[in-house]
């Protein structure tokens, strides 16, 4: 009797084993893709391992508060993209997306020229927070308290 396994259970064990193997393979592939599948480099990654000059890369990070400077030609801007470890100066000529503001996320497409990142295109990155406009006039602490209430 003990050697008898119901075909139902045999199938279940077989499928669970196959799924475990499959998920394992998927995880290994995802880990291997970790660097290649990243959409952009963080400033610290770009500083630690600079790509060759002129190679097209993307740089993503926060626009440093108070760093946006418009040049006299009116269309060229300079600003600093930073993360918690590094800061990279960026130059861009053209129209910026609506969500491109200081203290918010940005992804710049372009290349390193010397120590400056020259961007051909800017993409604004939204964060995971959704806050009504009325709260904009509150202080950051007040807005945080309101957001915390919904947690």
């Amino acid at each position: 009797m003990s050697t008898m396994i119901k075909p139902k259970h045999q199938r279940l064990v077989l499928i669970v084993l196959a799924l475990v193997a499959l998920i394992g393979a998927g995880l290994l592939a995802a880990i291997a893709l970790r660097n290649q599948a990243a959409y952009f480099y963080l400033p610290s990654e770009l500083v630690a391992k600079p790509p060759e000059m002129g190679r097209a890369v993307r740089l993503g990070g926060m626009v440093e508060k108070g760093s946006i400077r418009t040049q006299p030609d009116g269309v060229t801007i300079n600003f600093i993209v930073k993360d918690d470890k590094a800061r990279v100066p960026v130059r861009f000529s053209g129209i910026t997306p609506d969500l491109f503001v200081e203290g918010s996320g940005v992804v710049a497409e372009g290349r390193m020229e010397g120590t400056t990142f020259v961007a051909d295109n800017l993409l604004a990155k939204h964060d995971e927070k959704y806050v009504p406009r009325e709260m904009k006039n509150m202080s950051t602490a007040e807005a945080k308290a309101v957001i915390a209430e919904t947690k």
């Binding site: 995802a30 893709l33 970790r34 599948a37 990243a38 959409y39 952009f40 480099y41 963080l42 993503g60 992804v107 993409l123 990155k125 939204h126 964060d127 995971e128 927070k129 959704y130 806050v131 009504p132 709260m135 309101v146 957001i147 919904t150 947690k151």
Partner: peptide
């Protein structure tokens, strides 16, 4: 897992960053 242009999840296990 990957740096992406899409933002991270707003609603995670009992918490929400959505007002």
């Amino acid at each position: 897992w990957w740096n992406s242009l899409h933002q991270p999840p707003s609603i995670t296990a009992g918490k929400s960053a959505i007002d």
